[in-house]
Structure formats: structure tokens, C-alpha cells
Simulated scan of single mutants.
Amino acid sequence: METLIPLAQKLYLLGIHPEKGGIVYQSGTAMDYVIVGGLLMEMYLNKNIKFDNKRIVLLSDKSDNEAHRFMLQKMSKAKGPRRISSWINKFYYSLNYIRGEVRDGLVSKRLIKIEDKRFLIFKWKKPFATNKQVLYKLVDEVKESIMRGTSDEESLILLSFIQPAGLLPRLFPDRQERKKARARLKEMMVGNRVSTAVADAISASQAVAASVAISAAAASTSA
């Protein structure tokens, strides 16, 4: 029986290096924001939320998904609709829990394993793909959807995250193919307002985070 993989889990799986493990370099911290965005789109598809003028409107806080419930409960405490980028930044501070839920979902499906790593005082969890056949199949499906086009809503939503997640170099190592893929994605995203709004919010959040990091590094250097 085919394994059903939710959107956020697909994005995380696509970011794992098939041989070395870990998230591919090009995705880096971008994957953290994309996981949050992927979960938001899952809740949109489940009709827990809707998007109105780049703001999130809560429709229902009921869900069987632990990560969804965690996020929906926080949304239910807000006084009113907030901008997508505001929620993405807010959930970023709960990323350890949110990312853990996404990873655990893939582990329970036996698609990845997690190894605890340590270097000096630093500790982290490194994912490895354990079912590479599923991973390679997913890669092929995404590449085909990009190059041949698709009208399926869920597929279009997934594709809208490919560039914000930094996954184009992973999917298309050849520069010319990557250029064509980027152009195809741009064509398909025209009119896809909901997922494009989320992707734009992710890009904006990444830019703010990068600016803060640069400012902090500069302050540290001049001190």
C-alpha cells in the first residue's frame, strides 16, 4: 500500500541528502520556515484556516494532528486575524517541537531515522533516509510536475515551496535545467494566490532573520 505523506513531511524529506544524510546545504535554515509554511497549508486544505488579504483567519481549532493542534490553539488565543508572516515568525520560536513532530511522522512511517550527533558542546539530530525508493520516487514526481505542469491544487501548493526551501539545486543540479525549472515554476504560480502568499511570507521572514543575524554579527565585531 502506498504511503501517504503530508505536505510538510514531503518538504522535509525532499531536503534530506539521500547518501550523506542531513538537510542539503542549499536548504539550510530555510527548511525551518518552510516546515511551518507547509503545516499552515495543510491546515488550509483541512479547512481549519483560510487566508484573507495575506492574513490567517481561524475557522476551526479541531484536528487529529498534534502539530496542527499546537498551532491552532495558539491562533485561537489571538484577538483577531494576523498576517501570515507574523504567525510564521511566532511559530519559529516553537520550531524544536514543530520540527520534531514532522520528523517523528516520517520516522513512524519508516522513511527516515534520526541519529543524535555531538561536536564539543553542540548537539543536534541528523536525519537519514531509510527508504530511498520512496524519496527518489517523490523527487521524480516533483520534477515531472514542474516540467510537464499540473493543475492539482495540492501539487501546486507543494511546488510553491520548492524555491523558498532552496530545493531547486537539489532537484536540478544542471544549471540549464534549473533555469528552465525556475521559469516553469514562475508560470505555474501565476494566479495561485494562496500558496504564493505563504511562499512570499516565508521569503520575507527569511530576509528579516538574515538581516538580524548580520546586524548581530556586525555589532559583535565592533564591540
Rank of each mutant, 00 (worst) to 15 (best):
S145P: 05
K186F: 02
V190G: 04
K47A: 11
A204C: 05
K90V: 10
K143L: 03
A183E: 14
V134H: 01
R99Q: 09
A201C: 09
S86Y: 10
P6S: 02
L45C: 10
S63M: 02
G15K: 03
E144R: 14
K180R: 15
A67P: 04
K179D: 13
V142F: 07
Q206C: 08
S85C: 04
K90W: 13
W124L: 10
N192W: 09
R170G: 01
S211P: 00
T29C: 07
R182E: 14
I214H: 10
R182I: 02
P127A: 08
R118S: 15
N192E: 15
V190R: 15
S151V: 10
P18E: 08
A129Y: 03
S86R: 08
R118Q: 15
I16W: 07
H17P: 03
K123H: 14
K109Y: 02
S60T: 12
V190T: 11
G166K: 07
I162N: 03
Y92V: 00
R99M: 02
F51V: 13
K54F: 08
A201P: 06
A217C: 02
Q206G: 12
A213L: 13
S63G: 01
A78C: 09
K137C: 03
G149A: 12
E177R: 11
G21M: 06
K137R: 15
Y25V: 09
S63I: 01
A213Y: 10
L59H: 04
G166W: 07
T150K: 06
G28P: 08
M71P: 01
L39H: 01
L120K: 15
S86D: 15
I56N: 03
F122I: 13
K137A: 14
Q26V: 06
N48V: 06
I23G: 08
A197F: 04
K47F: 05
G21Y: 05
G21V: 11
E141H: 04
L72G: 05
L135G: 04
E144I: 07
A213R: 15
L106Q: 06
